[in-house]
Amino acid sequence: MPVSFIVQMAVSGALMGLVYALVAYGFQLTYATSKSLNFGQGELVMVSAFATLSIMGTGLPYPLVVLLGLLFGALLGLAVERTGVRLALEQKSEGWILLTIIIGLFLFSFAENVWGRDDRPFPTPISSQPLNILGIDVTPVELSVAVGVLAVMLLVEAFKRTTLLGKAFEAVSADRDASELMGISATRTVMLSYALSGAVAALAGILVSPITTVGPTMASALVLKAFSVAVVAGLESGFGVVVVGLFLGALESLASFYVGSGWRDAPGLVLLILALAVRPTGVFGKAVIRKV
C-alpha cells in the first residue's frame, strides 16, 4: 500500500470532516447562549439543501440562490427555537431535547413526502475536476467546503469577540436572568443564535450536497458525526471542532478502507462514548467546578 494513497484518503476524509465540524459548530452556537442544541439539526441541513435545490430550479444566479438558501436555513432555525426550545428554556427544563427530536422527525417526514425519497444530484458551478496539490488530488468542490467552513467560523468568532452583542451572547449563557436585568433580551439573543445556527446548517447542506447528493437521509449519518465532533471537542470550544472534525474525517476514511465500508460510522460513535468516559467536558472544554 503506497503511503501516498493513505495520505490521499486521509486528506479527502479530513475535508469531509470539516463539514462535520461546520454542523457541530451549529450546535455550539446555540449551546453558547442557551445550553441547548437542536437534535434535529441534521434535518435542518437536509431540508435547507432541498429548499436550495428548489430555489435553484427557478434559474436565479448561484450566489443569490446560496443567499436565499442561508436565509431559509435561518428562518427554519427560528422556527425550531420558537416551537421547540423557548418554552423549555423559560421553564428551565430539558424538554427541548425531546421537542427538537420531534421537530426533526416531522421535518424528515415532510421532506420525504414533498421532495421524495430518492437522492438527487445538486448542481454547482464549482468544478469537480481534481487539482493535484503536492501529489494529492483535491477537487475545487472539496476546497470550497474548506474555505466556506473556515470563513464562516472566523466571521462568527470575530463577531463574538469584538462586538458588544457578541459579549451579550456570553452573558446570556452565563446568567440568563442577570443579562435580562442589563437590558439584554435573552429571548432575542437565543433567537439570534438559532437563526445563525440554522444558516450554518444550510451552508453545510449547500457545501456538502454537490459531493453527497441530496436526499432525506443525507444528513442522518452526518449529524451523528457532528454530535461526536461537538462532544469530543467540547460544546464550548469554537475552534476545537475544526481539529476534531479533521481528525475524525481522516480516521473514518481510513477505517472504512481497512475494516469495511459498513463500519464507516463506527469510529465517530466509539470516539463519542470514549470521550464521555475519559473527559466529559470535551478535549478542549474546561472542567466544571461543582458548587453548593
Binding site: 437534535f39 430539558e94 451523528l224 462532544v231 460510522d265 462514548i273
Partner: peptide
C-alpha cells in the same frame, strides 16, 4: 458507566450513538 457521568444532552447523545452503533 461512561454515559451517566453526564446529564442532559450529552447523555442523550451517548445513547443515540449507542443505538446507531
Amino acid at each position: 458507566l461512561p454515559a451517566l457521568r453526564l446529564e442532559g444532552p450529552q447523555f442523550a447523545l451517548a445513547t443515540l450513538s449507542f443505538t446507531a452503533l
